[in-house]
């Protein structure tokens, strides 16, 4: 099959998912192209995982149109799933099996012949650096290793599209970096990736294109750079006041009118959006607001999220 860079693998239009009275996904549109890494960024409860389950053909949309590889999930679920590699949020590894068996048995679910399965399993364990643990039971692995095993398992059928639901949530920084490195290599191999995350650094590092979700809706989309350019200023100055509380910070923020292009008070700091960090820092000093610390930095996706939702990414909204 010739690789067409613009081939669209997933097309969603007006996608909705209702659970009783609660609507988890409220009409989203997106397109995922071959070869790209596409991200769903949002806080917990934003509808990311539900959207992923619908793409994975294990959850039926309540409304809207969804199309994967030109097939309809409603009638061609097994055929679509045969071309997907899924890493669910909770791994769902088989803890009655060894590391190696987790891969070969899973290959069986795809109807892959035993010999092919064993060869691919050995290669994939090498890829995720678990060869030395291949005879161990899953429960004996650390969280990061289990995650890597889940990723290896998702690649056993050589998928056209890999779906990773919060691949690094709950991992320590070292395990996260190892995982990022593997995902980056996966991208270089030409595997199309869809991932959800609530870490903006993860989204910035891995995603070519992403959508920001909030309360079941897509509130912005584009490349990380485009999103930052469109929604926030180039730089942000952070003011921290040790010991002061939300209302105090709001009072101080009000006195900063006219500095930068916008001032925002958060529970723990004040953000001043500006196109020139140095200028703004100088202007702040002139105002004599005496913060404990001042930090001028590049704007990030987190600032985009904050501007769009009024909340920090770390805050849960149920």
């Amino acid at each position: 099959m010739p690789v067409d860079e613009n081939e669209i693998l997933v097309r969603a239009h007006g996608l909705r998912k209702r659970y009783g009275d609660f609507e988890a996904v409220r009409g989203v549109d997106f397109e995922i192209r071959r070869g790209e890494a596409f991200g769903f960024l949002g806080a917990n409860g934003a509808g990311k995982s539900t959207t992923m389950r619908m793409i994975g053909c294990v959850s039926e949309p309540s409304d809207g149109a969804l199309d994967l590889f030109g097939l309809d999930p409603h009638t061609d679920g097994p055929a679509i799933r045969a071309r997907l590699g899924v890493v669910p949020q909770d791994n769902t590894l088989d803890n009655m099996l060894t590391v190696f068996e987790n891969l070969t048995v899973y290959a069986g679910y795809f109807g892959i012949k035993r010999r092919t399965a064993a060869r691919r399993a050995a290669e994939l364990l090498e890829f995720v650096q678990l060869t030395a643990r291949s005879r161990d039971k899953v429960d004996d692995l650390s969280g990061g290793m289990q995650r890597r095993l889940a990723i290896a398992r998702s690649l056993i059928n050589e998928p056209d599209l890999a779906l990773l639901d919060e691949p690094t949530t709950g991992l320590d920084p070292q395990a996260r970096h190892l995982l990022w490195e593997r995902l980056f290599q996966l991208k270089q191999r030409g595997v199309s990736i869809v991932l959800t995350t609530h870490y903006m650094d993860e989204a910035e590092q891995l995603c070519d294109r992403l959508v920001i979700m909030d309360e079941g809706r897509i509130i912005a989309s584009g490349s990380p750079r485009e999103l930052i350019d469109t929604h926030v200023t180039k730089e942000v100055v952070e003011l921290r006041y040790g010991g002061l509380h939300t209302t105090d910070l709001a009072d101080i923020a009000r006195t900063l009118d006219g500095i930068g292009s916008q001032v925002e008070a958060l529970p723990d700091r004040i953000l001043v959006y500006t196109d020139d960090g140095d200028d703004t820092t100088a202007a702040l000093e002139a105002r004599d607001v005496s913060p404990t610390s001042v930090l001028a930095r590049r704007a990030t996706l987190e600032d985009v999220f904050l501007r769009l939702t009024g909340r920090a990414l770390g805050e849960d909204d149920g």
């Binding site: 994975g56 294990v58 679920g77 097994p78 055929a79 799933r81 045969a82 997907l84 899924v86 669910p88 909770d90 769902t92 590894l93 088989d94 803890n95 009655m96 899973y106 679910y109 795809f110 109807g111 059928n157």
Partner: peptide
């Protein structure tokens, strides 16, 4: 308990 079938259903298995 073990959620074995959750993993299985992500494959072509019904």
């Amino acid at each position: 308990w073990m959620k074995v079938y959750d993993g299985v259903l992500a494959t072509p298995m019904r």
